[in-house]
């Protein structure tokens, strides 16, 4: 394996290890639920990204062939981690956060989790019925 590849792989592995550990440590250390969301969504994304780049360079150095599947995993994680974070934040807003503690967006509107009607609210208004009382849809027609 060429020397530059060895240096690059080592560097990326060490950096990503540190960032991954800091992300998990932040999850444990930060004081309240909303600040905890910050640590894993950022530090861990770079941690895994670094590992994947290291793996790509290592594969290229060892075999001479460039494998591109790692890029795909990185891309997938970058696309999905904001969505997971948004969902977790929405769960927190829905279950715990008082509406009065948030800044108002503009006069006469509210945040979608609290005031919107219909599907854009993302929260069911009517509590689900217990399974025994649930009426099955009529499929005979």
């Amino acid at each position: 394996m060429p020397f530059w590849a060895e240096i690059t792989v080592t560097g990326f592995l060490v950096i990503s290890g540190v960032f991954g550990l800091v992300g998990s440590y932040g999850l444990l250390r930060l004081p309240d639920p909303m600040t905890r969301i910050h640590a894993p969504t950022k530090a861990t994304t770079l941690g895994v990204g670094g590992v994947l780049i290291a793996s790509m360079v290592y594969g290229f150095g060892a075999t001479g062939e460039l494998s591109t599947r790692e890029l795909l995993i990185t891309l997938f994680l970058f696309l999905t981690s904001p969505i997971s974070a948004l969902f977790i934040a929405k769960v927190h807003l829905h279950l715990r956060q008082k509406r009065e503690s948030l800044p108002e967006p503009e006069p006469d509107t509210g945040w979608a989790s609290y005031t919107a009607q219909g599907p854009s609210r993302g929260v069911r208004d009517i509590p689900p019925q217990p399974p025994s009382e649930r009426v099955l849809p009529d499929r005979s027609r």
Partner: peptide
């Protein structure tokens, strides 16, 4: 690379314990 690999594996395993 082996040393760096061990270091990274240790970091992520410790992270797994913390989570």
């Amino acid at each position: 690379i082996a040393a760096a690999l061990t270091f990274a594996i240790a970091c992520f395993s410790l992270g797994l314990v913390l989570t």
